[in-house]
């Protein structure tokens, strides 16, 4: 009886337990970001950049290519919040259009480079054997060549332009992505849930599709933020060198390059596009770092999460 009574007491005690009230989703979602202000700033910058890249051309007050001989080298004003260029073009409008160029470039590199690279990486890590060898040795062969040399070769063959730059950066993203995802997939394929799936008769394709891909997706997000930063700075660098965007195109790199000709006399010509590049790249890097910290359990401690 005593035993029964004790068990009943325990049951009663358990019934009286109350789980803490679950916090709203937004609070839970924001928690890691608020613990890492730098990452939160990065998130805001990245989101702002994407939004500007999408709506920029609609909110730009002027045609970024429009010449205005009477408004050359103007300073900051209500009419021209960032002043004007040597050709009288509105710098603010060019920055907004430039955001779209960078965004498109980043998306192109992501779609044609990182995303296929992700698939290759998962295949490489999960299936191993000759698939792994073929993909990874190709990546190593690619990495053996300096990308700038490859880029210059391609440009010598087909001429300068964003397409040439995008091809090279995308290929770089492809192998970079495959290397990252291969490592992650290798870890995932040995986990118990994969073994369990296999035990209940799931096919290899099902395992990859239903279990591996969802579990490596956080790393893909981290990779995407890095790819964007790399793509933006690559586009700006190569445009600055005259190998990317053609003169006249509203783009941060080309504007920085053209502004540098008058940089001492009119420093704002280089400050605005330079700031735009720096801020956005910094934002994506902060975002990437924070995503990695949030999504990698081993690093959670480093950002103050004790759970």
């Amino acid at each position: 009886m005593a035993t029964i009574a004790r068990e009943q007491a325990i049951v009663h005690e358990q019934e009286s337990w109350e789980l803490p009230a679950e916090k709203p989703f937004i609070v839970r979602a924001m928690k890691p970001w608020l613990r890492n202000p730098a990452g939160f700033i990065g998130l805001i910058i990245a989101v702002g950049f994407i939004v500007l890249g999408i709506i920029g051309p609609w909110i730009a007050p002027y045609d970024p290519r429009e010449l205005d001989a009477q408004a050359r080298f103007e300073g900051i004003s209500w009419a021209h919040p960032m002043g004007t260029t040597a050709l009288g073009q509105d710098m603010f409008s060019r920055i907004l259009y430039g955001a779209r160029l960078s965004l498109i470039f980043g998306i192109v590199v992501m779609i044609f480079g990182f995303v296929p690279g992700t698939a290759l990486g998962i295949a490489s890590g999960y299936f191993g054997r000759w698939i792994d060898h073929a993909i990874q040795r190709s990546g190593e062969a690619w990495a053996a060549f300096p990308q700038l040399i490859i880029l210059l070769t391609i440009i010598a063959a087909v001429g300068p332009g964003l397409k040439s730059v995008a091809v090279v950066i995308a290929i770089g993203g492809l192998f970079g992505g495959s290397r990252l995802l291969r490592a992650v997939s290798l870890v995932e394929k040995h986990k118990d849930y994969v073994l369990a799936a296999r035990a209940v008769g799931a096919t290899e394709w099902d395992i990859v599709r239903r279990y591996i891909v969802p579990n490596v997706m956080p790393y893909v997000l981290v990779g995407i933020s890095s790819v964007f930063a790399v793509a933006i700075i690559a586009e700006a660098t190569l445009s600055f060198l005259g190998l990317g965007a053609q003169p006249g195109t509203p783009g941060w790199g080309i504007d920085l390059s053209e502004g540098s000709n008058e940089g001492i006399t009119y420093p704002m010509l280089v400050i605005w596009p330079g700031l735009a590049i720096s801020i956005v790249v910094l934002g994506f890097n902060l975002l990437g770092d924070t995503l990695r910290d949030i999504l990698d359990p081993r690093l959670r401690g480093s950002m103050g999460d004790k759970h």
Binding site: R65, L67, L87, P247, E258
Partner: peptide, 11 residues
């Protein structure tokens, strides 16, 4: 040359 090209393009 580059600047002239941009100007002519717009004109």
């Amino acid at each position: 040359d580059s600047t002239l090209g941009q100007v002519l393009q717009q004109q």
